[in-house]
């Protein structure tokens, strides 16, 4: 019971402190689909807004989301310069399937592999899909768990809002 109280206290303090903190991306080594290593801290180096979306080849709503946004992505890029990074949490068994799976669907995203879930854990993702909109300074300005048709509009609105703030 004591343990539980301490834990609850810790969670409450964390939530309160969350308001004042500065978010930066955790440093984790991921792989590209051609086998190169990438440090997640480098994902923000282009100083543009970044959307990081955790997905897997076995997850139906993830595929629905990525198919939907793929049609809109060229316009989003043109208007806001956003970079969309699709981080696959496929385990070793399905990891090699990611490249042919995505290529056949014609996805234009940068795809990274997180087979042991290190980045997923570091970003506190419980379920996929889970998407984050990240400002060039590393702040998470918007996030969403799951996908229902229409959620792409919410993502775009958040992106537009961020774009306006950045121009100011």
């Amino acid at each position: 019971m004591k343990n539980l109280l301490v834990i609850i206290f810790l969670f409450v303090s964390a939530t309160l402190l969350n308001a004042q903190q500065n978010n930066t991306l955790p440093q984790v080594m991921l792989k590209t689909i051609d086998g190169k290593t990438v440090n997640t801290a480098d994902l923000l180096k282009d100083s543009t807004p970044v959307i990081i979306d955790f997905w897997a080849t076995w997850c139906k709503p993830c595929i629905m989301e990525l198919n939907t946004i793929n049609d809109l992505y060229p316009d989003w890029q043109e208007e806001t310069g956003v970079k969309f990074i699709a981080v696959s949490v496929d385990e070793p068994r399905t990891m090699n399937r990611v490249a042919p799976f995505a290529a056949a669907r014609g996805w234009n995203y940068e795809i990274l592999l997180d087979p042991d879930g290190q980045f997923k854990h570091a970003m506190n993702v419980v379920n996929v899909p889970h998407s984050f909109l990240i400002a060039p300074d590393g702040h998470i300005v918007w996030q969403h768990s799951g996908f229902a048709p229409g959620d792409e509009d919410q993502m775009y609105e958040a992106l537009e809002k961020l774009e306006k703030q950045l121009k100011k």
């Binding site: 810790l10 903190q21 419980v126």
Partner: peptide, 21 residues
């Protein structure tokens, strides 16, 4: 851990608390 957390929260820049439940 809590002491560490409170100490660090005093205006430090590169400090972050995250979690899930």
């Amino acid at each position: 851990a809590i002491t560490f957390l409170h100490f660090l929260s005093r205006g430090q820049q590169d400090f972050a608390v995250h979690g899930d439940f």
